[in-house]
Design a protein around this nucleic acid. Structure first.
Lengths: 236, 236
DNA sequence: GGGGTTGTTGGACATCTGCGCAATAGCCTC
DNA sequence: GAGGCTATTGCGCAGATGTCCAACAACCCC
């Protein structure tokens, strides 16, 4: 209906697609659902996106890169590698927000059959790993931590986090949710030669950024005005 | 065409479904594909399975429980907990066979929207964890290894394995395939207070079962006569 | 061999899929 | 206000989807 400029419209489409993807899953998201969500025709979507794969990849990128940027920015406010790592675990969203991590699950599964989505999810996964690896490297240089292979350690820390979150999200009840982060933190401490408790979230002595809760990023699915409405669509 | 008894036919359907699931992914498997694969009509499938969810769950169960049983059986041929663990890593298939692990990826992603599939994948995931946990417990009792919480350690070891395999399968090239098992083994050794190299696969001193390669289970997708054909359908 | 049981067929049903295209409607410039 | 640019429509296309059901055919028992 409302006539928009190309950038604005593209943005609106990506936003609507993201909402649908959160509700129905990446695999079940269709052009018509996205169009209905925006209140426009389905032809419009194909005017801006050459294929469904491209749209899904762009929408996933928005959700995932936003999470990454929030964490990256929060970490940049810390000065020492240990503080940065503590912030990393404190702001790590995937493990805490089902809708965001379910998106990752969908992306990993779909990756083998949607080239553009795979490229995006791989790029972002590597970005997460590099963020960790660079922090670890800095910590080694500064002498705060010890690690023979920061690159490998980063993959292990991230993979344990993902593997545990996977169980918590896909199989509710198998693993206590708090254990996902607790265990990952403990593993990181061991891996990096840090004393037990060094990376625990409670002692957030970093700069005075107002992190009320451990989850500081967009705590609701995109476009969802209030949490209750999501409970309808995604009954736990 | 050929008239079969109920058990035989149900079995044939599950087998055909599994082939299609491996080729096209769980989400893209349809009744007609399965029927075509068997050379029968599509109506026949619904005569034996009330819904698609039920069929997918049964087929996934066959693939996953077979892998579990092979590993369990191989481990039972060892006498010490350390030997059992070594066999566990040596026969762990998910990390090595893309088609099997891709099935797990699909199942985890689909779990939130297919109740029966979720129940099955959760049950089997827990079975894997218990297999590990019980072995660790036995090792602690025998004094071979030390571990304050075998149950939690089992989840961590399994999750790191899954998290690493996830990257190797979904994002080919991110992680060296051999690192998936190597890193997991090292982590398990640290977690259980074992000396480095204790769980390495090369020193397979167990009973004389003919394990030519580290992968001892069904090394090809179900129903696939030769590996080359899979390369066509699942280009790496 | 006849009759009943039951595995199997093949298509109907309504709905959905990604994609493309002519026609339309809104906005900006002159 | 006229003209042109372009965002947007609305439907068509060819095919796929899960589910259901009356009809058919193969088998076994009597």
């Amino acid at each position: 209906m409302a006539r928009m400029g190309p950038d604005e419209r593209r943005n609106a489409i990506v936003g609507a697609a993201l909402e649908v993807m959160v509700e129905r899953g990446i695999a079940a998201t269709t052009v018509r659902h996205v169009a209905d969500r925006m209140g426009t025709s389905s032809g419009l979507i194909h005017h801006y996106f050459a294929s469904m794969d491209e749209l899904l990849a762009d929408a996933f990128e928005r959700a995932a890169s936003q999470d990454l940027n929030v964490t990256r920015e929060a970490m940049s406010r810390n000065h020492t590698a240990v503080d940065k790592l503590r912030t990393f675990f404190a702001t790590y969203a995937r493990a805490e927000q089902d809708w965001a991590f379910q998106l990752w699950l969908d992306a990993w599964a779909e990756a083998s059959r949607r080239p553009q989505l795979r490229a995006t999810s791989q790029r972002l996964n590597i970005a997460w790993q590099r963020l960790l690896a660079e922090t670890i490297s800095a910590g080694v240089v500064s002498g705060q931590m010890s690690c023979a292979d920061p690159d490998a350690a980063a993959w292990r820390i991230l993979s344990l986090l993902d593997g545990l979150a996977l169980q918590a999200v896909a199989h509710r009840g198998s693993i206590d949710r708090s254990a996902v982060v607790t265990w990952s933190v403990r593993h990181a401490e061991t891996e990096l030669g840090l004393a037990d408790g060094t990376l625990d979230g409670s002692k957030s002595d970093a700069a005075g950024h107002p992190l009320g809760s451990p989850c500081n990023r967009s705590s609701r699915p995109p476009g969802t005005p209030a949490p209750p409405s999501r409970a309808h669509r995604l009954p736990s």
